[in-house]
């Protein structure tokens, strides 16, 4: 009987396992294998490179810049969009009129495709005719070359990302808020607790599982979402907005060096695994699962 149960369990797992192997684990391994070769050039076949691709990464200034950019990009977008998401969720969860419309308004950026959004924002950001500089000019400030100044380009990308992402994360917080137990709040009201105290001691701790989920996703997205780069900056000016995934794309499809791209992919993969582990270890201790 027990044997049968075991077999039954494995059979149930089989479809998922096959998909996971075929589309995740085997490709990861072939990527590793692929990264150990030089690309074939013309009539010369591909040669074994050992760790040479990884060694050249160490001297690759653009790689390091993309790496730094990506860290700043994550630091700049993740906390802000999460805080905004929580604030918006609290706001649209309260009893106000026009709540449904407000929820929809906050969620709209998420529904639009990134490429479409980037095409619109490209014109917002244009120095001479763009919306943002017109606003700045109307209050007497000089405009900024948002995407064309290396000091501002990455910040401009972050602004758009925050606008795009926070509505998405708001949905998770909103769902979580609506499932919270009302009795605790009733008890807090009896104790005459201040709203801030209730938020700090009740709402926030109860939302921790959601926060972890959102955090992991937000960090992943900071490394995964590069669609807008294709429209807005193409990683420029002079790599000021180059991010790791975009650099991988450039290597694979613009430079035809899929082997170096494979090596970069592996580094990105390891980085993401490390980040996920750190997040789980740090946040797990502060979560109260019911």
């Amino acid at each position: 009987m027990n044997r049968f149960n075991q077999l039954y369990a494995w059979l149930m797992l089989l479809p998922a396992l096959v998909l996971l192997l075929a589309f995740t684990h085997i490709p990861a391994l072939t990527t590793l294998w692929h990264s150990l070769f030089f690309p074939a050039r013309g009539r010369n076949p591909s040669e074994f490179a050992g760790l040479e691709n990884y060694r050249s990464m160490l001297d690759d200034a653009v790689f390091w810049q993309a790496f730094h950019n990506n860290l700043w990009y994550a630091i700049g977008t993740v906390p802000t969009s999460m805080a905004l998401a929580l604030a918006m969720a609290l706001w649209v969860n309260s009893k106000i009129s026009g709540r449904a419309a407000l929820r929809l308004a906050y969620f709209t950026p998420t529904m639009l495709p990134m490429i479409a959004v980037a095409n619109i924002w490209l014109f917002f950001y244009t120095p001479e005719i763009g919306l943002f500089n017109k606003i700045l000019n109307s209050v007497g400030l000089t405009g900024i070359n948002w995407l064309g100044d290396p000091n501002w380009a990455l910040i401009s990308l972050m602004l758009m990302t925050i606008w795009k992402e926070s509505g998405f994360f708001m949905i998770f917080y909103l769902a979580a808020l609506q499932s919270l137990n009302k009795d605790i709040y009733a008890a807090a009201a009896v104790e005459n607790a201040s709203p801030l105290y209730v938020f700090r001691r009740i709402t926030l701790p109860l939302l921790m599982p959601t926060t972890l989920f959102v955090l992991v996703n937000a960090v992943l997205n900071a490394f995964k979402l590069v669609d807008h780069l294709f429209i807005l900056t193409k990683g420029g000016p002079n790599n000021a907005t180059n991010l790791l995934l975009y650099y991988i794309y450039e290597n694979a499809f613009s430079f035809f060096d899929s082997n170096y791209a494979a090596a970069l992919t592996l580094v990105l993969l390891i980085l993401l695994i490390l980040l996920a582990v750190v997040q789980f270890l740090l946040v797990e201790r502060r979560i109260h699962y019911r």
Partner: peptide, 20 residues
């Protein structure tokens, strides 16, 4: 000419709006 990058994609619009 303005400082910094001048975007390929929006330049035509700049010209049409007589910004250059």
């Amino acid at each position: 000419m303005p400082q910094g990058m001048i975007e390929w994609g929006t330049l035509r619009q700049n010209f049409l709006e007589q910004k250059t």
